[in-house]
């Protein structure tokens, strides 16, 4: 087997809520796992079991107080826990893509511009980026008359598809998906599952949160039940 593209070594994570009687919630305790190119990992478990926390730590959106998250980024191995901000921006641009559960919509920014933002950040020529943007919006069945509008007024399902279009517009060696199919109808769900399969085939390492059993079966990756392997305790 190849070297892992992502190697999580003994990470722990807790949250202390200073203004809520100092409540401390331990979400991850000494968690380790390796992830390989072309591999799909499905995170499952009840709300609060640490699924999104794990994704956000891999993306360095949450701090990593203990342990290492080693990412293979352009032939170098980078520890996300200690990487400088400039390197983390670079990793987010080229190596780790993240599709959050909800799109952060911006007024005045068109759906098409929202989708191609990661491509423009990679310095892709705007004309080519727009071409790719149109292609992926079409694939995700967003009507053409909406492309130039800001997604602020879109329905939940449309916003989620804009979010997914943004995530799939550029290929990422590691793609983190936080409940990508949660607000989609069956036809759009099928399209998204196909995009995921294509990305796996192309060698992406997919780590996603999927509650739906048929989604899990279709992706056919390893299933990690976070409630089984993680310690989660609350102390005051």
């Amino acid at each position: 087997m190849d070297d892992p593209i992502l190697n999580i070594i003994s990470i722990s994570k807790d949250f202390v809520f200073h203004h809520q009687e100092g409540t401390r919630i331990e979400v991850l305790d000494d968690f380790s796992m390796k992830f390989f190119p072309g591999q799909a990992t499905i995170l499952t478990g009840p709300s609060g079991s640490g699924k999104s926390t794990l994704l956000r730590m891999i993306y360095a959106g949450y701090r990593i107080p203990k342990g290492k998250i080693l990412v293979r980024h352009q032939k170098t191995l980078v520890d996300m826990a200690t990487a400088l901000p400039s390197l983390i921006y670079d990793i987010r641009q080229h190596t780790i893509g993240y599709v959050s559960q909800f799109l952060r919509v911006l007024p005045r920014v068109s759906a098409l511009d929202t989708v191609i933002e990661p491509l423009i950040a990679r310095r892709m020529e705007p004309r080519k980026a727009k071409q790719r943007g149109r292609q992926i919006l079409e694939c995700l069945r967003i009507p053409e008359n909406l492309w130039h509008l800001s997604a602020t007024t879109f329905s939940g399902g449309e916003q989620q598809r804009i979010n997914l279009a943004r995530g799939f517009a550029a290929p990422y060696p590691i793609l983190l998906l936080d409940e990508p199919t949660a607000s989609l109808d069956p036809e759009n769900r099928r399209i998204v599952m196909q995009l995921i399969q294509d990305a796996i085939q192309a060698g992406s390492c997919i780590i996603g949160i999927f509650h739906n059993k048929s989604d899990q079966k279709e992706i056919a990756g390893r299933v990690i039940d976070m409630s089984q392997i993680l310690c989660r305790t609350a102390e005051v």
Partner: peptide, 16 residues
């Protein structure tokens, strides 16, 4: 990083 501060604030004042 901006998301670290706003999504995972550590200090009491930032949390407030």
């Amino acid at each position: 990083l901006s998301d670290q501060i706003l999504d995972d604030p550590r200090e009491p004042y930032t949390q407030l």
